[in-house]
Design a protein around this nucleic acid. Sequence first.
DNA 1: CTTGAAATTGAAGCAGG
DNA 2: CCTGCTTCAATTTCAAG
Lengths: 163, 163
Amino acid sequence: MAAGRVELDRIDLAILRALVFDSGLTNKAVASRLGLAESTCAYRLRMLREAGVIIGGRVKLNFSALGFPIQAIVKVRLESHNAEHVNNLYAKLTLVPGVIQAFHVAGEDDFHLHVAVESPEALRDLVLKHITNNRVVRQTETQLIFEARDGVGILADQPPAAR
Amino acid sequence: MAAGRVELDRIDLAILRALVFDSGLTNKAVASRLGLAESTCAYRLRMLREAGVIIGGRVKLNFSALGFPIQAIVKVRLESHNAEHVNNLYAKLTLVPGVIQAFHVAGEDDFHLHVAVESPEALRDLVLKHITNNRVVRQTETQLIFEARDGVGILADQPPAAR
DNA sequence: CTTGAAATTGAAGCAGG
DNA sequence: CCTGCTTCAATTTCAAG
């Protein structure tokens, strides 16, 4: 299920490219866009899922409309890099309400959290009550997000083993 | 279409909560999970889309399986903060192959790029050929991502105006 | 690996509570 | 605002090329 490396042809890539932009596309729509039979397209889609190439789909929400107009990146730096401490903290951080994504990184910082909150006060509370209150956290640094955009991703041009 | 603020009841929130974890759920599946009639669930879903609360869906890919096993955060700092320069650069950055997400942030850094690449060499090339080659870029700093996880997000607990 | 047609299942529309 | 029924569209299955 969690595959190591998968061989993909140009059709698979075309299917992925269509779906990365809009996971709501029906199988029929993808098939007709690519000039495939519906059953063929459905078959390849199922294979891509079973091979673990397509992990899942997440609906994209409008945070502002939901009353969470403020987004930020919170950089977290640790006191101790004991493996157990780091793992425990990581698990906790992903469960903090408002945390959209959590990156465990190498280098200057240890974690980068992408968060969305209701207000500046909520941002302060999130940092103080859920992050800096952990023993292993040495320091945090918060940067407001003016705007977040999706990039073209990895399917933009020819992949390593295109054929 | 692009709504300012939307009033949601607990049913709407339950629908969103289900879909954020798995956008592939059918309307029927969501309805039965919540004990709603299918048509009711479909109606509310359509409203959530029209209100702009649900923006769209993006399929989540397994970058490693696709041959892009290395992820990183590239912090970008600028020379000039002239509005036009910043906007032009932002547009360019989102089009760099491998850039999954681009954050325009306030504070120490100007942009944070989440990238996925084939190899360490590809990471170097991405930074040198697509980022630092821009006149307005003063400095970059790259942090390898050990692991990226999704957080619980904003629907974890009671929202601001739950009722 | 791909296909088209049959059978199953889900979505959309609508009148009524 | 919610529901059940009807109609229509999409997905799945499968035997065959």
